[in-house]
Structures are given as structure tokens and as C-alpha cells.
Amino acid sequence: MQQVKGVIARVKGAPVEVVTINVPDAGPGEAVVKVLSCGVCHTDLHYREGGINDDFPFLLGHEASGVVEAVGPDVTSVAVGDFVVLNWRAVCGECRACKRGEAQYCFATHNAKQKMTLADGPDAGTELSPALGIGAFAEKTLVAAGQCTKVDASARPAAVGLLGCGVMAGIGAAINTGAITRGKSIAVIGCGGVGVAAIAGAALAGASPIIAVDIDAKKLGAASALGATHTVDASSADPVTGIRDLTGGFGADVVIDAVGRPETWKQAFYARDLAGTVVLVGVPTPDMKVPDLPLIDVFGRGGALKSSWYGDCLPSRDFPMLVDLYQQGRLDLDAFVTEEIGIDDIEAAFERMHHGDVLRSVVVLEGAP
């Protein structure tokens, strides 16, 4: 057992706290990871606000890189000293999806069996719920060994750690779920971190045109810097009309909704070409409903309406490949890191994220290069 600093959301809506937590020794199938960096993702704010579930207190943080410090007695997939990016899809290898060769859809992903706990105060011993099974706003964390993906140790931790969630979700939504390729057109509605990552993924795949849609000029600028060939300012123009005008009047082959609201999903539905694909990667709230659409339009337009789970990624396949592209200068992960902050600065980072001032604030822990 070790005691380290970690950031928790103790109760719904309250500011986060830096506290001392207990990290158990790695048991069977588990690994203890010294965290080097962790991105501040909107999902962490959802946890703090009770938008995921009410299993407080939460140990926040999940978009992380680190070094394996210890492994359980049966772990062979990673070893002490490995530089890893953490993921929240440790595949089981046994469920019906895994057995049919589609591990990216694993229906029985798992986390560490032991629980990290509060170390001090009247609540000492209280079990923590780690965000997405990771809990990486901490100096060290306990995860399932399958949540660790070994990557090139010379890569910048603050940049490649972002593959652990938002950047992978966006790139994967374009390449894996949307199956975007050379010669196909794509539009992305919503240009926060996930949407801009989808644009970067489309650029990697050679798509053209690549159309970015948002109401914020700063976000459209970031989208252009990462590969968008055209932009539509949805604060002053209808997104459907704008996308159609830029695609010969037909609509895009793939339209990604990176916002996750009924109105943006409906825009995506009507902004795609015949036989085109809509990809929902923005996360809706439980109260949101599919918009009222004439069923004849669903039938008559053909194509596919898809949801993207974590960019339909397989971390063991996708993380090393994307890190290699980053190291080659072909994928600018550094552009997603707006600022590097300390573990005490997360509440202020939530506020900057709320106002759209950053793509990602990244917590950098002591000892990170």
C-alpha cells in the first residue's frame, strides 16, 4: 500500500479537492502506474457534476500517460519500467465480440478489482470511484494491466497521454467508425478537442474537403490549423446549407456530430450525401431524444447512422501507431496541449474549458520529462 496525492470530487457540484489516497499493491491482473501527465477532459467535469452517476467520491482524471511501477504476479502484457498510455477499454478476450475478432467492441471491459481509498480524515477508508476506471489526477494509480498500452518511451508524455480519451475518440470517429478515406468528403460539427481530433484524423486519411462547423471563431481557427480545408460559422450560417454548398450541393460523405445534441445530430443527418454516414461521437445527456424525423427520410437517404464508442479503437493496435505518426511529425499532438498545469490547478482548468479557452489543459506530475 502506498499513499499519494490525488484529486477527488467528494460531492456533486463541489470544487475538487487535493487529498491523500491509498493505492493498493498490484494484485492479479493489475498494475500500479506512476502518472506523468493527465489531460483535463470534459468527462471529468461531468463526473464532478453528477452527470455520469452518483458513486461519489470520484478520483478524477483518465487521459493519462505514465510509467509502470509494479505489476501483479500473473501480468505479462506490460513490465515494470514500460512507458504507457492508459485506456478505459481493457478487453476481456472472451466475450462474443472478442471471440468474433472485434475486440474494439468488447462487451466486458474491466478495471482493477481492488479499490483505492481515502487515507485521512473522518472518511478514511472510503472507497473511491476512479473516473472511467482510471483515476489519474494522482501521483500514482491502480489499473487493470490491460488498461496499459506500451508506446515509444521517447514521446512527450503530455501529448501522447491525450490519446487515452478525447484525441483517440475523435481520430477514431473519423477513421474507424466513419471509415473516411482519400477522395471522400467529411464535415465535423463541433470543434472542441474531440471534433478537432476528428479533423486531424480526416487529414491523416486524405479526405477532401474537410469542413469544420462551430459557433466559435477560435475553435474554427484551431480546426483549420489541424487540417480543415473549409469552415462554417454556425453562429451566422445554417450548417446544413453551408456543408451542402461546399460539396457541390450534395452533402458530405461522412458527417460527425461531436457535440451530441438532438439539433446537431439532425443537422448531421441532413448534411450528408445520399448513402452517406452520420457518426455520433459527442456524448448526449440521458434526457436527450433522437429528433423527430420522417421515416421515409431515414429510408430514402440510405447510408448509415452510427455511434462511435471511444473511436471504435483497439488501444493495443491504435495507440502505438498514432504515437509513431506523432514521432514522425505527421500527427501534431502537441497542438492539442494548450497549457501544462499542476495538480492544484484543475478547478481553474475546468473554468477555462467551460469558456472554450483551451483544447486541453494537461496536468503534469512531478518527474515528467
Rank of each mutant, 00 (worst) to 15 (best):
Q2W: 03
V4C: 07
V11F: 06
A14M: 04
P24C: 00
D25I: 06
P28M: 06
A31T: 11
S37E: 05
G39V: 07
D44R: 00
Y47M: 00
G61M: 11
G61D: 07
G61R: 11
H62T: 13
A64T: 09
S65K: 10
S65Y: 03
G66D: 10
V67F: 13
V68I: 14
V68S: 09
E69N: 13
A79D: 13
D82T: 06
N87W: 07
G93D: 12
E94K: 15
G101C: 08
A103K: 15
Y105N: 10
T109D: 12
M116Q: 13
A119E: 10
P122S: 15
E127V: 13
P130W: 15
A131L: 10
I134C: 00
A136D: 08
A145E: 06
C148G: 05
T149D: 03
A153L: 02
S154V: 01
R156A: 13
R156Q: 13
A158S: 15
G166I: 01
V167Y: 09
A173M: 04
A174H: 09
I175W: 10
T177A: 15
G183W: 11
G183F: 09
I189L: 15
G192E: 04
A198K: 08
L204H: 03
G206E: 05
I211E: 01
V213H: 05
A217F: 01
L220P: 09
L220R: 07
A222Y: 15
A222F: 15
L226S: 08
D233A: 12
P239V: 06
T241Q: 14
T241W: 02
T247V: 06
T247N: 02
G249H: 02
V255T: 14
V255G: 11
A258N: 14
A258E: 14
V259K: 07
R261C: 03
T264K: 09
T264Y: 07
Y270F: 15
D273W: 02
T277W: 01
P291N: 14
L293S: 00
V298K: 04
G300S: 11
G302N: 06
A304E: 13
K306I: 00
P315Y: 01
L322T: 04
D324N: 11
L333T: 03
I341K: 00
D344R: 13
I346Q: 05
E351C: 00
R360L: 04
E366S: 08
A368Q: 04
